[in-house]
Each structure stands twice: as structure tokens, then as C-alpha cells.
Design a protein around this nucleic acid. Structure first.
Lengths: 116, 116
DNA sequence: ATTTGTAGTTACCCAATAGTAACCAGAATA
DNA sequence: TATTCTGGTTACTATTGGGTAACTACAAAT
């Protein structure tokens, strides 16, 4: 899941891309935003992600210091995630991407759909 | 290479991540920058990328309107790439990522290396 | 006694991605 | 005549990614 050639590069930009340059992480960071959120919520809010992949991505984000994980010793278990200072500092970049996209995206021709 | 679920999402942010959210594209865009560059140069400047993958990524970037490709009908062939307006507009975002990384990166412990 | 709920983990398997090597055109150069 | 040069493409293989389903713990509710 993580490309060692990127993470161990001596180019800081390449290393940065190694940590956040995949399709799930920006989505996850964006969904969390400034709130505290539970695993199950993430799982149900983010479309098409499996619990397995979600777990992996969250683990990596935590390892890279973007995310804080708070596990309560309860049953049934409760785990809360929230962005660290580093993660929060990444949010404006995601906003920039949104603006950039809004300005330049070539809007795809919407699929023919049957509404009943 | 391209995840249809992302590109066809009705969420613009998800679509944006679908186009630039992978490890090679930010690297390629960053390497091109404001200059005009040839295929062979890209291939030799970017570490670890294979010609096959480079070709695929360039093709997608062109399809998504980030890149302009200029092929000269010569032999041996000459092909030049440069960023479009959309591509150029993405450069400041890459700069933001560099700043963000410089500020927050947890520097990896350098590997034990033998210098002779 | 059985079901429900949470946040995972694990095993298994198929699909997608990426690496490698060989090959192409055809003009210019040795 | 053989080699070099460029920007690819193709076939084949290896590696990885990711989906699915089953399973865990244990308390509380039915």
C-alpha cells in the first residue's frame, strides 16, 4: 500500500507524495475535517470503501502523524478519530484542490439515466 | 489505472482526486513545471518510473487537460510536453504541499550506510 | 438463550498495476 | 552495412490491491 521508493526518497516532495498521494487519503482527510468521528461513521459516509482498506489507510495516516486515534476501553468498542495539527494544516490544500477543480474541470457528459 | 468510481462520482472533489490523486501525476507535473520537456528527459529525470507507466500517465494527464503534447513529424521522433493553463494552475498547490511537508514532516531516521 | 452492536482482523481469491525485454520506423552517422 | 537515435507499443510475468465473508470480544437488550 505504501511505496517504499517514495517514502525513502531523499526528495522531500517525493516523500510527501508518498504519504498523501493516493486516492483514499485525501478523501478520508476531507471527510474528517475538523470534527471527531468514529470508525463506523467513516465507513458509512465514504462510498465504496471497504472496512479493510479503511483500516489500513487510517493506520497509515496515524503513523504519518496526520491523525489521532482515541480508543475507549468499552464494549462494544468505541474509537474516535480526529486530525492532528499536521492533518488540519492539510485541509486548506484540499480546499485549493476543490477551487482548482471547480475552475478547470471538464465536466463529464452525464450518463443516460432512467428516472421512473 | 484510473478508478471509474472516482471519475464518475457526483462529488467534484472525488472526481478531482480521481484525476490527480495518485503518486506519479504530482511528480510528473512538478518535474515539468513551467518548461517544455521531451519524453526522454522526463524518463531520465524521474527516478524509478518505467517508460510504460510514464506513457500511460502522460496520456491520462493529456486527456484530463493538464498537459499539451506536441509531436513533430520527424525521424527520430520528437515529442514535447508542457502544462496547459489548468496544469500550470496546479503548480501552486504542489508548492503548498512542499511547504506543508517541510513544516510537519517527521524526518525518517536515515539508514545506516557504509561510505567507502 | 439469542440477538445486536462496534471496530476491527484474518484468510482466500481475483483483478488491476507495474516491471522487463523485445520490437518498430526510418533518417543520419560511422 | 551496421549502428544510433527517439518515443513509443506489445507481450509476458510478477507483484500488489482490494473485495468478500467469516470471526473476535463482551455487554446490554430482547
Amino acid at each position: 500500500m505504501r511505496d517504499e521508493r517514495f517514502c525513502a526518497s531523499n526528495c522531500p516532495f517525493t516523500r510527501a507524495i508518498g504519504t498523501i498521494g493516493n486516492k483514499w487519503k485525501p478523501i478520508i482527510i476531507n471527510v474528517i475535517g475538523v470534527r471527531t468521528i468514529r470508525f463506523g461513521q467513516l465507513d458509512s459516509i465514504i462510498p465504496h470503501i471497504s472496512r479493510k482498506v479503511l483500516t489500513e489507510q487510517l493506520k497509515e495516516l496515524e503513523e504519518d502523524g496526520l491523525l489521532e486515534r482515541l480508543a475507549y476501553k468499552e464494549l462494544p468498542p468505541r474509537v474516535e478519530y480526529k486530525l492532528s495539527e499536521k492533518g488540519l494544516a492539510f485541509l486548506p490544500i484540499l480546499d485549493n484542490i476543490k477551487e482548482w477543480n471547480a475552475k478547470y474541470e471538464i465536466v463529464p457528459i452525464p450518463e443516460e439515466t432512467d428516472y421512473k
